[in-house]
Design a protein around this nucleic acid. Structure first.
Length: 774
DNA sequence: GGATCTCATGTTTTT
DNA sequence: CATGAGATCC
């Protein structure tokens, strides 16, 4: 494929720019990913740069994955050795490779997520005899994260006030606790990499020489530490190509600083700056509205965005009575759009806070309209999943006391607070890690210990299992290890308690198992790292027939033919916590701008008269941002007006379809879906028009539809679906032969021998086995 | 030691 | 309203 095909002049200029610093300021919809990927292809193909000498960094796994695919398509095959990944994954890879040069860590260090961090901070506070009610863990963590994002170590932390001094001490202790656990938090991955490169000129030089070209996506979202990293890596040659848009900077609260764009120009005075101003996404009207909104922010780099999609539908602005009516109105609009040839999957509903998704979901369920929730509760944060990961982490890294504490009594095994404290105490006195102490208890029969009777029995039993797992660590695969653990702790019977929720939890564990089993070639550390650095929203299914529901933050980088932005009220968007700070307010405005610019054809904005938050209903004022929309671009409707027009049919505020679109079959929807790893998109339940419209009490939306589709309510204890000898196909493992299959609870456990992959035990509901004829 | 209740808490969350 | 952590009760 010709790399320069169908590029406009500016895009071409960026792709073919000479080596050296390049700054691409890319408006929304201006084809920045295309430019970035073509730049890489150009470097390889035209400038003859070996792929392994190129480093491309992104913020999300999804962006990295997409870039990789597109580069592959351009180059007609895999660019061997190309480094492409998120900042965190890139740093983790460097740290892992250089681990022997790290003072406090050994090779199996683990990555702590926010829940783990909270435990660490509590430990730090306890160690310092500070009250965690007086000093809020979340606040302290935020402060620590901010420091790390600014490359400030505890030693460099300037404390001139009492509270800052507390912060400094907690930060310092927090780092010690992490190190004692052989663990890093997300921010450490970045900071420790920079520190390492600063300490060791030889290592710095090695990476500078390897990465002859550095490319960065979403540059406006970099924080100080990330920018420091980039500057160091590109330090020798200065071949750094960054793409960003300060108008889309919406992660300031995470340390992102779009002023890095200005700094870039100062750091690299010779940098070539290229503006991508042509928008290929939106209609003129939508783009004009977006421009009018963002124009109110000060100190912007001026861009003159334009589109060839002149005209377009006007923006619809609606006032509804309350959130319920707002949701129902949106659904009615989607149904109307369907008559115009749009699919529900062409539509997205965006909101400021996750809490707003609930009422929307309920309305979608009630109307039997398909939807998918993007980036809600993350799979890897689910309790049962975290529990099992904690087991694996402990096996991988017995120093991990956070995981230890998490699972010492999960499933309940008779180790309560007292016994646990005694154990931790005893371990501490001897200078052992908790897991180490447990091993001692079973391996060293002469050891003096404070346990008797039941406590001793429980601890030894667990100690024996743990010791055995650790000794098997090098010999078995991750999947086998997990299988063994699940079996021995009888996790299934612990979870499956006859409720749907219990079954869901077990299903989640089986899904994790499938991920592990598919990661055959990975070592345990590697597996855990991968699991720590992926997130759910990386798996938004494209081309799903369901309307996407997401926060405005989650919407960045996406586009939809039809976009609804809800809750345009002062206090929601802009959010109440941002009202008293100009910089925060500017960021809220950017958030609105990001939302508007996601839309290709149609944009619907809505606010309500009465908003219910935290169970309290209050009158809400329309968002101040609405004043920034030129009235000639907007069609305003309010439900009271509409009601008068359609008086005959609509009679009350509470009626669900106020504008006369009472189409939505009111059959009780069965399954909604969160976006899940390796799950098919939410299955579309078409409105069953002829069903008796008896609105049942709302089923609580299931977290996903995996195990029940496509055959809901498989009779328990029925015949197995799979027979011995039957040939099946699995997405990962390919063809195989069924060895045995048995029905267990609501599911079926199938053992299949796969060519080249050995025998796998799979949960039928997850494995998605395809039966092969013959 | 384990279950149950109460009470505080609540923006966004690429990793 | 809905969730989670900690206290309290059995």
């Amino acid at each position: 494929m010709d790399i320069l095909e169908r590029l406009n002049e500016q895009q071409k200029k960026a792709v073919t720019a000479a080596a050296g610093p390049v700054l691409v300021l890319a408006g929304p919809g201006s084809g920045k990913t295309g430019v970035l990927t073509r730049r890489i292809a150009y470097l390889v193909q035209e400038m003859r740069v070996p792929p392994w000498r190129i480093l491309a960094v992104t913020f999300t796994n999804k962006a990295a994955k997409e870039m990789r695919h597109r580069v592959e398509a351009l180059l007609d095959g895999q660019p061997r050795g190309l480094s492409m990944g998120t900042f965190h994954a890139t740093c983790a890879r460097i740290l892992r490779r250089e681990v022997e040069n790290l003072t406090y860590y050994d090779r199996d260090f683990v990555i702590f997520d926010t829940a783990d961090q909270k435990q660490v901070i509590k430990q730090a506070l306890a160690d310092l005899n500070l009250d965690d009610k007086k000093f809020q863990p979340s606040k302290l963590l935020h402060g620590i994260s901010a420091a790390k994002n600014e490359l400030i170590t505890p030693d460099l932390y300037q404390a001139t006030t009492y509270i800052a001094e507390i912060n400094r001490r907690v930060y310092s202790r927090y780092q010690e606790v992490l190190q004692a656990n052989n663990a890093m938090d997300f921010d450490d991955l970045l900071m420790n990499t920079v520190l390492l490169l600063d300490e060791r000129a030889d290592i710095l030089q090695k990476y500078q020489e390897q990465y002859l070209h550095v490319l960065v996506d979403e540059f406006q979202d970099t924080n100080t530490t990330q920018y420091a990293l980039l500057r160091r890596l590109a330090g020798g040659h200065g071949n750094i190509f960054v793409v960003g848009d300060s108008d889309q900077s919406i992660y300031r609260w995470r340390g992102a600083d779009y002023r890095n764009i200005h700094r870039f120009r100062e750091s690299y005075p010779g940098a070539e700056t290229i503006l991508l101003e042509q928008n290929y996404r939106s209609t003129q009207i939508i783009l004009d509205a977006a421009k009018s909104v963002i124009q109110h922010n000060k100190d912007r780099v001026h861009k003159d965005l334009f589109t060839e999609r002149l005209g377009g539908e006007r923006i619809t602005l609606r006032e509804n009575y309350d959130g319920l009516e707002e949701a129902d109105t949106i659904i009615a609009s989607i149904q109307q759009l369907m008559l115009d040839g749009y699919s529900p999957g062409d539509c997205a509903v965006m909101y400021r806070t996750n809490a707003q998704s609930r009422s929307l979901e309920e309305s979608f369920v009630r109307a039997s309209m398909p939807y998918r929730l993007v980036g809600a509760t993350q799979f890897y944060q689910r309790r049962e999943v975290k529990d099992i990961i904690a087991y694996l982490r402990l096996v991988n890294n017995p120093a991990d006391s956070v995981s230890f504490n998490r699972i010492i009594n999960v499933p309940t095994r008779g180790v309560g607070k007292k016994t646990r404290d005694d154990l931790l105490d005893w371990a501490k006195r001897h200078g052992w890690q908790p897991a180490e102490a447990l091993s001692k208890l079973v391996t060293d029969l002469d050891v003096q210990h404070p346990f008797r009777g039941r406590a001793f029995k429980s601890l030894s039993k667990f100690g024996e299992m743990l010791t055995a797992w650790i000794s098997l660590r090098e010999q078995v695969s991750v999947g086998e290890m997990m299988d063994l653990i699940l079996e021995q702790i009888e996790f299934r019977s612990y979870l499956v308690d006859g409720t749907d929720e219990g079954q869901d939890r077990w299903d989640n564990v089986m899904e994790l198992y499938n991920v592990a089993a598919a990661s055959e070639s990975m070592g345990l550390s590697e597996f855990l790292e991968q699991v720590a650095l992926v997130s759910e929203s990386d798996n938004l299914e494209e081309d799903s027939p369901a309307t996407a529901l997401m926060t405005l933050h989650a919407a960045k980088g996406l586009e939809f033919p039809v976009v609804f932005i809800v809750g345009l009220e002062d206090g929601i968007l802009p959010h109440s916590r941002s009202l008293d700070d100009a910089e925060s307010l500017a960021e809220e405005r950017r958030l609105f701008y990001v939302g508007i610019t996601r839309a290709k054809d149609r944009l619907y904005l809505s606010h309500v008269f009465r908003r219910t938050t935290y169970g309290e209903t209050e009158v809400a004022a329309p968002s101040r941002f609405l004043n920034d929309l030129p009235s000639e671009l907007v069609d305003s409707e309010s439900s009271s007006k509409r009601r008068q027009q359609t008086k005959a049919r609509a009679s009350s505020w509470n009626q669900s379809s106020t504008d006369g679109w009472g189409l939505g079959g009111r059959s009780a929807a069965t399954s909604s879906s969160g976006s899940r790893r390796r799950q098919p998109a939410a299955s579309y339940q078409p409105p069953k028009a002829n069903r008796v419209p008896t609105p049942k009490p709302l089923p609580k939306p299931r977290h996903y539809g995996g195990s029940s589709d496509p055959e809901p309510a498989r009779p328990a204890a029925a015949e197995p679906q799979y027979r011995t000898g039957e040939k099946v196909r699995h997405a990962k493992f390919g063809e195989g032969t069924v060895i045995e299959s048995k029905v267990t609870g609501n599911d079926e456990e199938v053992s299949v021998a796969f060519q080249g992959h050995g025998v796998k035990r799979l949960a039928a509901s997850f494995a998605k086995l395809e039966k092969l004829a013959g």
